[in-house]
């Protein structure tokens, strides 16, 4: 445990400054997303404004839209607190991205390693099947699916994203497996008669994970963009649940007067994707360096 935190510490220190900042932003977003939900999980009021509260409905004055001490990032077209909505919106992005990544790493990683190591007909059939899903531009397939089946709750959206995300992970895992399977340590294990399942789990999968994980970070950024796009089109999570995408959509109504209601969610969205890309790129380089050194 201690060595793990020390390893993390050294890794963090080794990061270039931008990557450090990026990582901290990501940690902030994850923390904010979880924090925004603590309310609903434990039923206690946190010092965060209600993202649904529209003061003017209850006879209070309508706050100005710009930033103020009462609303640090101003309010949206329905006078709701932008900051609260942004943090709540982070949850949707987080859940969708986390689902895709975990599905990808677990199922995609396993399937890819399995077919890459065993080869043969199973591999051919699996890859051909996945090619069909990969034959659609991702956004178009998601649009058709989500729209046609009227998927509106977060669990279902996350599941659809998660399942459709698997094929790419399989491809990458398989490609890495093909490389790893030829290595000396695998051949050595085979030579001493280690069971193939054991090789798969002890040798192959641990060795393909770093590359897969680096991809997962970049993929998470992509997923957040796609979810944002669907939300923007009004085809993702049901309102009034805030998402960055639907906040942009709602903000477009008053774009002639102010860009702020679009600017904030746009900034959060872009910064999060930038951060994921930066950390992912950095990790990818390190993985590449390490595997070339092996």
């Amino acid at each position: 445990m201690r060595s793990l935190s020390r390893r993390f510490g050294t890794a963090f220190l080794a990061m270039p400054l931008v990557v450090k900042i990026a990582l901290m932003w990501l940690i902030f977003i994850v923390a904010a997303a979880i924090y925004s939900r603590l309310d609903r999980l434990f039923g206690q009021a946190l010092p965060l404004q209600d993202p649904f509260y529209q003061p003017f409905l209850f006879g209070e004055a309508r706050p100005v839209e710009g930033p103020s001490t009462a609303h640090y990032l101003g309010t949206d077209v329905l006078s709701r607190d932008n900051l609260a909505r942004l943090l709540h919106g982070a949850w949707v992005s987080l859940i969708v991205a986390a689902t895709v990544v975990s599905f990808g790493l677990v199922f995609g990683g396993f399937i890819g390693a399995f077919v890459g190591y065993t080869r043969g007909k199973v591999e051919t059939v699996t890859m051909a099947t996945l090619d069909v899903i990969l034959a659609f531009p991702p956004l178009v397939l998601l649009l058709a699916l989500v729209a046609v089946y009227k998927v509106r709750n977060l669990t279902m959206i996350a599941l659809v994203f998660g399942v459709l995300g698997i094929p790419t992970y399989v491809r990458i895992a398989r490609a890495s497996t093909l490389g790893v399977a030829g290595r000396e340590f695998v051949q050595a294990a085979e030579a001493i008669g280690t069971k193939r399942t054991a090789i798969l789990f002890r040798e192959i999968i641990p060795n393909i994970m770093p590359a897969l994980f680096a991809y997962a970070l970049i993929n998470a950024g992509y997923v957040i963009v796609i979810e944002g796009t669907l939300s923007y089109l009004g085809l993702s999570v049901q309102i009034p649940e805030p998402t960055w995408g639907n906040m942009i959509n709602e903000g477009r109504r008053d774009i002639r007067q102010t860009i702020l209601p679009i600017f904030w969610p746009g900034l959060f969205l872009t910064l999060s994707v930038v951060s994921l890309n930066l950390v992912g790129d950095w990790l990818q380089q390190r993985v590449a360096v390490r595997s070339s050194a092996l």
Binding site: G228, R252, I255, G266, L269, T270, V273
Partner: peptide, 9 residues
């Protein structure tokens, strides 16, 4: 990193 629709808007 910037989503296409956001750049468009």
């Amino acid at each position: 990193s910037i989503p296409g629709f956001l750049a468009g808007i």
